[in-house]
Design a protein around this nucleic acid. Structure first.
Lengths: 212, 212
DNA sequence: TGGCACAAGTTGTTCAACAATAATAGCGGC
DNA sequence: GCCGCTATTATTGTTGAACAACTTGTGCCA
């Protein structure tokens, strides 16, 4: 759970996701390398993989900036989620190890909701869906979801109403987990479809309202 | 269609997929940089993105080698394909621009089969599935498939019987396209499910026979 | 044979430099 | 004042060299 991979790439990754650099911010090679205490070359190597992961946008001769997801990006992210998550849930076994991760995420979400700790709540919600994807036992699909989730968090960062964004889904996560355990994967999958449609609508609403 | 992006990354990518470096080959930074006429630093940057795409394997302090897919990798690749491709086909519209790409790929495949040009045939078959994924209009799913397809080609490279690998699917592609156009997406999707199961079995058979 | 120190080679990282490109400022003309 | 052009400045792209850190292979010695 705790990711203590201290490679430069992961450090940058975490800092970006944590909102240290706002989406759209230009990341100057010289100043950032200096601030991180590494050389330009190693920083550039890290930039290449972050760019490949979609966290950072690279324009030739103009450097990299923190990705700033557009409405089209959000739509595409949810499209990909609808392809992967419900199918993983439908075929998943209630005995799969990832189920305990789902349960842990639900409980963490409930705790965070009570504490009104929106950042932790957002992380917990994401962990819940990550566990759903893990049901598929597919490293490649997990990688896709990891990248997609990171991008989505960037979109979340631009919305300054985290409560509306995350709070409504705590009870839904709990309900979805129970459906999965008591009624099986296919029933949970259809419930997740609706869930994702609602989630997309929530995000897009806040998003377009923001870009007004 | 013709990819003439001459970035170092793409040059390397093409050469690896074309089998210039056999899977598992160690790619020495010094000698390869010299051979390509670039510096070690820029080569390393290219390595980072190829590694992120799964085409190349990076082990700290031991450099990179051309990825050599295992049986588990092939299984996972087909699992991911079964998640994405049938769903894209099921929801796809016969009026989508990608349909013409599907048709072109089918015809190219038939031509290559007649000419017994297995390499081109393999490319055409991949283009067919690429077009299926394109039906989904999702850049992220297309990216996933692009990476997956490249990995699969590496697996193909290790199998020295390309005819058995590619030829049987020319008529199946034609049939699948007709099912899609005449009976619609969902019917084609179930046909594609069986197709992929068969394809996986073909590859895995040749693969395990190879590793004996 | 088995273990150990040493040597050779490779990768990881840094630094300094310069070319190529993009952004900025200033200037002249209208 | 404002527009368009040129010159300056800043940033990225790439190179080459250097050295530390790590792996691997070799030969020595017990």
């Amino acid at each position: 759970m705790t990711d203590v991979d201290d490679t430069l790439t992961n450090v940058l990754r975490r800092r970006i996701i944590d909102g240290e650099f706002a989406p759209g911010t230009r990341l100057s090679e010289i100043s950032l390398a200096e601030k991180l205490g590494v050389s330009r070359n190693t920083l550039r190597e890290a930039f290449r993989v972050l760019s490949e992961q979609g966290l950072v946008e690279h324009v030739p001769n103009r450097g990299v900036s923190v990705a700033s997801p557009t409405v089209a990006d959000v739509v595409d992210i949810y499209r990909a989620r609808r392809y992967v998550e419900p199918a993983a849930l439908a075929a998943g076994s209630p005995l799969h190890p990832a189920v305990s991760a789902m349960r842990a995420a639900v409980e963490q979400g409930e705790t965070s909701l009570e504490a009104r700790d929106w950042r932790t709540l957002g992380t917990a919600n994401m962990a819940f869906h990550d566990a759903i994807v893990a049901l598929a036992d597919s490293p490649r699909l997990e990688r896709l979801f990891r990248d997609i989730a990171a991008e989505l968090r960037l979109a979340f960062l631009e919305i300054d109403n985290p409560e509306a964004l995350h709070a409504p889904f705590v009870t839904r996560n709990r309900a979805l987990l129970e459906t999965f355990l008591e009624q099986g994967g296919p029933a949970a999958a259809t419930e997740l479809q609706d869930y994702l449609v609602l989630s997309e609508r929530t995000v897009l609403g806040a998003f377009t309202r923001l870009r007004h």
